[in-house]
Amino acid sequence: MLQAVPAPPLLDVKDLTVQIDTRRGPLLAIDHISFHIARGEILGIVGESGAGKSLTGAAIINLLTPPIRRIQGEISLQGARIDGLSIQAMRELRGKKIGMIFQDPLTSLDPLATIAQQLIETLRAHLPLSPSAARARAIGLLREVGIPAPEQRIDAYPHAFSGGMRQRVVIALALAAEPELIIADEPTTALDVSVQAQIIELLKALCAQRGASIMLITHDMGVIAETADRVAVMYAGRIVEIGPVAQIIQSPRHPYTQGLMGAIPSLGADRTRLTQISGAMPRLTALPEGCAFAPRCTKAMALCQTQRPSLTPHEQGAAACFLLEGATV
């Protein structure tokens, strides 16, 4: 549906492949994944732990550290390649063009610096502002993210804030330099339900105001349902299905997505038995030769054991399954 837009997408990832070097040989943590994010769009990335969601986010902004490294792939932001940038150029890009929000708001803030110091440092690193102008801007940002009495609270240390308030500060930091893209890695997982709802609303509203796109990485399908425009479902380092959020939830095409949707207990349904996918996701050390989901798949065929399906587009999205390519049992 977004393919008709002639301008390049905000973020375009092609064939991204990430490898972990171990003593027993290399492991493919992310296996040739491609996707794009349009301007102002919220793309959800879901998957179980170990599926490669967070690594995808880290690979985009080149935060991978050995033994993890990107071995292949093109990443373009606004049509310009960013995968080959120097360390210095990448550092300027992070924060300025791409903001990051991590799961645990306590560890993403420096406990030994006041909120003011952290915000002002970030602002002045990216924008030509005087210290007093940066401070005024920082107070404005804190007000925007809903921190009461920001003039007084700005000089407090992170420990004086509650979990929800800290995550608001982290959002303020991520938005400080008006980035085009926010990579939010499990931004609400450490928070209580009532606070989680507030943070999601805030993130959505602020990005809509600024026209920023969000790459929302989470394992919580409920958060995705309420927030995202499109969803990419990851399994064992690959994207198995991608499409508009309503399609993924209501009429998933890939057997894994179908199983996943049945496995999620919902508030609407009464006490019914959940669909269950037997087994667990394979470890990276023991990836099957064919489709990674084949050992747990009820519809697996002989073909699935030996060959890997690639993403096949359909009218709304795409899914990687031989069944959708017209293969029969």
Binding site: D192, S194, A225, E226, T227, Q250
Partner: peptide, 25 residues
């Protein structure tokens, strides 16, 4: 009521929030 309104659920696709959540525990 607040808790139920706050829970993200897969059946609430693109749903705007009707109740505003206030404060923390």
């Amino acid at each position: 009521r607040m808790l139920l309104a706050a829970v993200p659920d897969i059946q609430k696709i693109g749903a705007g929030r009707t109740t505003r959540m206030e404060g923390e525990v």
